[in-house]
Amino acid sequence: MSSAPHKKALLKVIILGDSGVGKTSLMNQFVDQRFSNQHKVTIGADFIMKDMLVDGRLVTMQIWDTAGQERFQSLGVAFYRGADCCVLAYDVTNSTSFKNLDPWRDEFLIQASPRDPEHFPFVLLGNKVDLAQDRAVSRKKAEAWCQTKTKMPYFEVSAKEAVNIDLAFQTIARAALARESQDTQDFPDFPAQVLLDCGNAKSSSFCSCQ
């Protein structure tokens, strides 16, 4: 590509979803190309990085794998900020995990408080499609849900059998890249609820005027 001299992009991606939907496995499959049934419970959050080529450009994916139990959600504040893309994962054999996507998404937007939340890139992954016989959420249903969320991209994947993983993460990287290049100052420096923020925004705009 002609855009070779670009500096290496660092993309921060958060993966969210109910406990047991396979977030850690998805990540392991993406990063190490392997599936293990011996991974550990994720406590707090784990971090992985992977370099990949997106449209001829080298990007580094900084992925945060989170704990699925709800009470850990409150810790998100510590590392959601600055995310370029949020991956929502559910288990196609577990309709509750699908039902909970809305809350995960809303909660992410609250805690990360990105500017322009309407257009923040999310990608939905329906994991465990290898268990077709236990399927509880139809593709149609998931796609319909995505349509209501500003056409969120949707992939049916299997971490166990490495179905669609690369494709999905390519899309994730692309979405994150678009977001990142579009607006690097995506996140305010302070949480929105801190009053100082308004003052800050003003003063900074003042400075830029000068």
Partner: peptide, 10 residues
């Protein structure tokens, strides 16, 4: 039933 409501109170 949104995410905010599911959060633990601090």
């Amino acid at each position: 039933n949104n995410g905010a409501a599911r959060l633990q109170s601090e």
